[in-house]
Design a protein around this nucleic acid. Structure first.
Length: 430
RNA sequence: GCCGCCGUAGCUCAGACCGGUAGAGCGGCUGGCUGUUAACCAGUCGGUCGUCGGUUCAAGUCCGACCGGCGGCGCCA
């Protein structure tokens, strides 16, 4: 059995055995209070000298934090115990006596220090809660897409050239040649839709930008669905449904973790389709009225996104950006070729962009023209152009950032807590 | 890359304006306490004040350079 089952009350009055780690210990006279965690939860165990004898009692007294132990005893309902249940220990086995100098104290630490010990920090209740939510978000993405007939197609990590030609990529030697770590699987998904219709990839992506913000990592995970015979509107519908599904799933399965994090769930409970939508042009208007110095044609920055996101209770789509501010492959709006059929989904509470998506150009001539306008090397995109030569169809897709989504759902201040071992501009250890 | 702030005990920080024997809490260690909730109480160990140079009788403190980190912006998911 595990601790979470005991805390659910399934073992009251019964004998149990749990295997775990010593989180903390308090000694008062002849009673020791052990705080034990096993990965599923945290429970208090009590040991009395006159009940277990001197040998066990003295051995336990000598145990340092993080020692691994197996305890056996009787579950007792007790209001004084955190969680309402505790274990009255009858016997205890020491698996490993941890060294005494565990670097993570019970009091506060700075984030940089904690990140140096990320391999130990992930044991803490707050971090395990976040990472469990992350696992649930990922599972929800896969379940949602699998349930709608999408086929998982893995995109390569080593790629021959930039996808969008704008961001800085990590260059790696490749048998006397050069390769780059992928910044997106999208182009490969565009190839895969002609094989399967609806596909998605899920994997790490890399950006060598020297970003120093609480919302950027150099290595992060994205889910990128892509659909054949799918136009702009249908793409937005799927995004709404998927984000709603993810949030509902976390609320259903990870309520305890959100409580641990102190997350107020009322904003999350409001997430229901349809989401609000405003055009880029409307957004500029809204921002100008609010006193921002921004002109039509400029891309939205972090303060702009934050402002817009705070005006809405639900996630909000900002759509139809100026073509010049966006990637070369985006389909122009037939109503106004100055703008493209793209949308960013901004999470509420000031969190900003969690999804970027668009309808892609499917016509060969137009795509060739765009590649030239953006000054990209046409040779590198020959295979991508082939997709427009042999059975091209209108198609759309998007990329959802896992860490950004986890950050919003858990209401984190910094994205680096949303991934087990974050990689940022100045951290590749541990 | 740009702007701002910070580097003092294992950790979190005070001391710096106004130069004069290096401080606190937590953690560790020793002891006390039979219901603690980041337990508490007493004692104790613990320092190349980021590095290099300069000013000075004297530098943690003033000046300069460098290194490292944090926050904001840009780039984006």
């Amino acid at each position: 059995m595990n601790i979470s089952e005991i805390l659910d009350g399934k073992f009251a009055g019964k004998d149990v055995e749990i295997k775990g780690w010593l989180l903390n210990k308090r000694t008062i006279g002849g009673v020791q209070f052990l705080i034990v965690r096993d990965g599923t939860g945290i429970i208090q165990a009590t040991i009395r000298r006159n009940e277990v004898g001197d040998k066990i009692y003295d051995e336990v007294e000598d145990l340092a934090q993080e020692s691994s132990i197996i305890i056996r005893g009787t579950v007792k309902e007790d209001k004084r115990a955190p969680g309402g249940y505790e274990i009255k220990v009858t016997s205890l086995e020491i698996v490993h006596k941890a060294e005494r100098d565990y670097p993570l104290a019970k009091k506060e630490h700075g984030v940089d220090f904690l990140m140096d010990y990320r391999h130990l920090w992930i044991r803490s209740p707050r971090q395990t809660a976040i990472l469990r939510v992350r696992a649930e978000v990922i599972r929800a993405c896969r379940d949602f897409l699998d349930g709608r007939g999408f086929v998982l197609v893995d995109a390569p990590i080593f790629t021959p050239a930039a996808v969008e030609g704008t961001t800085t990529l990590f260059e790696v030697p490749y048998f006397g040649d050069k390769a780059y770590l992928t910044q997106s699987g999208q182009l490969y998904m565009e190839a895969a839709i002609a094989a399967f219709g609806k596909v998605y990839c899920f994997g790490p992506t890399f950006r060598a930008e020297k970003s120093k913000t609480p919302r950027h990592l150099t290595e992060f995970w994205m889910v990128e669905p892509e659909m054949a015979f799918c136009e702009f509107e249908e793409n937005l519908k799927l995004q709404e449904d998927m984000v709603t599904y993810i949030v509902k799933r976390v609320l259903e399965k990870r309520r305890r973790e959100l409580e641990t994090l102190g997350r107020d769930i009322t904003p999350l409970q409001k997430v229901e389709p349809p989401f609000d939508r405003i055009s880029y042009t409307e957004a500029i208007d809204m921002l100008q009225k609010a006193g921002f110095q921004i002109e039509w044609g400029e891309d939205l920055g972090a303060p702009h996104e934050r402002y817009i996101s705070l005006q809405f209770e639900k996630p909000v789509f900002v759509h139809r950006y100026p073509a010049k501010a966006k990637a070369f492959y985006m389909q122009p709006d037939p109503q106004n070729p100055e703008v493209v059929l793209c949308a960013d989904l901004l999470a509420p509470e000031g969190y900003g962009e969690i999804i970027g998506g668009s309808q892609r150009i499917h016509e060969l001539k137009l795509l060739e023209q765009r590649i030239e306008e953006f000054g990209l090397p046409k040779e590198a995109y020959e295979w991508y152009l082939d997709l427009r030569r042999y059975g091209t169809v209108p198609h759309s897709g998007f990329g959802l950032g896992i860490e950004r989504t986890v950050m919003w759902i858990c209401k984190l201040k910094h994205i680096r807590e949303a991934i087990p071992f974050p990689r940022t501009i100045n951290r590749v250890y541990p």
